Amino acid sequence: MQSLKSLGAHTTYPTDYDPSLLETFENKHPDVEYFVKFNCPEFTSLCPITGQPDFATIYISYIPQSKMVESKSLKLYLFSFRNHGGFHEDCINVIAKDLIALMDPRYLEVWGKFTPRGGISIDPYVNYGKIGTKYEQMAQHRLLNHDLYPEKIGNR
C-alpha cells in the first residue's frame, strides 16, 4: 500500500493555492464503472479584483480509472483556494484540470454553486470525458443537457 502523506497526520492548512497537496490511491475496482461524488459546501476563494471572499458548494463527480483522489488531500487542496484570487469560472476549470492531470479519470465534472454577491449567483460547470472513449460522448451529452431545470430562489 502506498504512503499517503495527509491521511492520519497532523493537519497543517495551506495559505496558497497548491495542487501538489492532491494525493491518489489505487482504484481496487478498475473493472467496474461507478461514480464517486464529493460535495464540498465550504469552498472559499477571493475575488481577484476586490479581494472579497466568495463562497460556494463545489460538486465533484468522477468515474475513476486506475487512480482515485484521497479525500483529505482534496479537502486541503480546496482549502488552498481560500487566499487565491480567481474568478468563479477560473476556479472551477483549474480544479477540473488539476484532477484530470492527477487521476486520468474516465469522466469528471466539477460544478460550483456560488452564493450570490451583489444580487447575482454564478454557477460554472465543466466536464471532461476521456478522448476517444464513450465518456467523450457522455461529456458532450451531459454538457449540452446540463441544468435543463434551473433553480428557483427557494431551492438554492
Rank of each mutant, 00 (worst) to 15 (best):
D104L: 05
T115P: 11
S45E: 02
C47Q: 01
A56Q: 06
D16W: 04
I60K: 01
S80N: 03
L22Q: 12
K28S: 13
K37V: 12
Y59V: 13
E136T: 04
F38N: 13
W111M: 07
A139Q: 02
P124I: 00
G154N: 12
K130M: 14
Q140M: 09
F25W: 05
A56E: 03
E26K: 15
G86R: 02
Y77E: 07
I49H: 02
E70Q: 06
S6C: 12
I58M: 05
K5Y: 10
R156E: 04
M103Q: 14
E23A: 09
H84C: 02
F43R: 01
R82C: 06
G118A: 09
I95R: 04
E23K: 14
F25K: 12
F38R: 04
Y135T: 05
C91N: 08
I60D: 00
C91F: 04
H141D: 13
N127Y: 00
A9F: 08
P105E: 15
N155R: 13
N39G: 09
T11S: 09
T15C: 09
A96K: 15
Q140W: 03
F81G: 07
I95T: 10
E89M: 01
S20P: 04
L144Y: 05
S45D: 00
G132M: 08
G8M: 06
V94P: 01
F114A: 04
L78M: 04
Y135V: 03
H10I: 15
Y34E: 02
T57D: 05
F38L: 14
E109T: 03
M68A: 12
V126P: 12
K67Q: 14
T24N: 06
P64L: 12
R106Q: 15
L22K: 13
V110D: 03
M138S: 08
F79E: 11
K134L: 12
Y13C: 08
M138W: 02
L148S: 07
L4N: 00
D90Y: 07
N83L: 08
H10D: 14
L4A: 11
K130H: 07
A139G: 07
E70D: 06
L21I: 13
F35T: 06
E151R: 09
G112S: 07
E42A: 10
D18K: 13
N27P: 02
F87N: 09
V126G: 05
I58V: 15
C47A: 00
H29G: 00
S45Y: 03
T24R: 02
S121K: 01
E33H: 13
D123N: 15
D98S: 13
D147H: 15
L22C: 09
L4R: 08
L76E: 13
N145M: 04
Q65V: 00
S80G: 10
G119D: 04
Y62D: 00
L7F: 15
V126T: 10
F81S: 05
P116S: 06
K134R: 15
Y13V: 11
S73G: 09
L108I: 14
F79V: 08
R117Y: 08
S73I: 05
C40Y: 09
I49W: 05
D16N: 10
F87M: 06
H29I: 01
H146R: 03
T12C: 07
P64T: 15
I58P: 01
Y13K: 14
K97G: 12
S66I: 05
Y128W: 14
G86K: 03
H84L: 01
T57G: 05
I122Y: 08
Y107H: 13
